[in-house]
């Protein structure tokens, strides 16, 4: 009798294991398939192309081994655009994250019409990037743009926003236009901060800055970390905005992108579609993939120093 019960319990555990594993694989399979088809396969294909001199159309390509990677090391245009992209990211991401947090703090209050303000600040982030870029191109126009018209009232300008070196700042302003997306995520995080913690700090004499610095920021640091990592990846991959802001007759024309906004992905785009160097362009993408991977790993490593999780990792073990 006891042996039968034990056997039955063993079978039950086995059935549960089967059910759990089957359910697990069933649920992850769409992602795994998507990853295999849409990420791993193109990555592998791009790597294979990066070892050739393929021009996108000709069947007369040949293997060049690591030649494209070696060429990259002495390609001053590519290296310069990489450094420029790092600089752009170093400036844009802190502003994006701080701006999103600042707006979220401002709108995380019980005020009249706060819903309206949240909507107004969020709306630009849902405007399609092409529409936003074209709108800003008109706003930035030196002779007829509204920005210079306003600045003129206070005796500034006219400023040629869309040419070097100002195009760099114009691009940052365009990127900040979509700040509302980050603001919403920050707002959600702020609303998860227990009010009693803030109240206790205030009772202990903390001012607003102290509360923000020592209570709110540590509490929402995982979300800030997420915003920083995704922000870095987003700014690294910027390509369409510089193309749209440039002096061009049609979307996608890389010819007249100012040097200051000639970011790494613009350089890749030029190699692919202006120079028809699919092999070299693919090698540049792989180099960039590695750079992003390294920076993300550094970010993950550094997160131990400043990101605070409510569940202690040691205790979790």
């Amino acid at each position: 009798m006891t042996a039968t019960a034990t056997e039955e319990a063993r079978r039950g555990r086995k059935r549960w294991q089967r059910y759990s594993s089957r359910t697990f694989y069933l649920f992850v399979s769409p992602w795994v398939l998507g990853f295999a088809l849409l990420t791993a396969l193109p990555l592998g294909y791009a790597f294979a192309i990066s070892l050739t001199n393929f021009n996108g159309t000709s069947s007369q390509w040949r293997w060049v081994g690591l030649g494209n990677y070696v060429e990259f090391l002495s390609d001053t245009d590519a290296i310069t655009s990489l450094v420029r992209t790092l600089a752009f990211t170093a400036i844009a991401v802190p502003i994006m994250v701080a701006g999103g947090l600042g707006l979220a703090v401002l709108l995380n209050r019980r005020l009249k019409l706060v819903g309206l303000f949240r909507t107004v600040f969020f709306l630009p982030s849902v405007v399609p990037v092409v529409a936003a870029a074209i709108m800003w191109k008109l706003i930035f126009n030196r002779d007829a743009g509204i920005l210079n018209a306003i600045l003129e009232k206070i005796s500034i300008g006219p400023i040629a926003w869309l040419v070097d070196p100002n195009a760099f700042y114009a691009l940052i302003i365009l990127i900040l236009w979509g700040l509302g997306g980050g603001m919403v995520i920050m707002l959600a995080a702020l609303q998860g901060v227990p009010a009693e913690l803030e109240e206790a700090a205030v009772l202990d004499g903390a001012n607003r800055w102290h509360v923000l610095r020592h209570i709110i920021v540590p509490m929402i640091s995982p979300v800030i970390f997420f915003q920083v990592v995704t922000g870095i990846i987003f700014t690294f991959q910027i390509v369409i905005q510089p193309l749209l802001l440039a002096h061009s007759r049609e979307v996608g024309q890389v010819t007249h992108v100012p040097q200051s906004t000639h970011l790494y992905m613009v350089q890749v785009y030029e190699e692919y579609f202006a120079n028809n160097r699919y092999g070299y362009g693919s090698a540049m993408l792989w180099v960039f993939f590695v750079v992003i991977l390294i920076i993300t790993l550094i970010m993950l490593r550094s997160s131990r120093l400043w990101v605070h999780y409510e569940v202690d990792s040691e205790a979790e073990r």
Partner: peptide, 12 residues
């Protein structure tokens, strides 16, 4: 005239 350093509003 318009150039890359003095762009026309719509590129044309």
């Amino acid at each position: 005239g318009p150039t890359s350093l003095d762009p026309a509003p719509d590129g044309a």
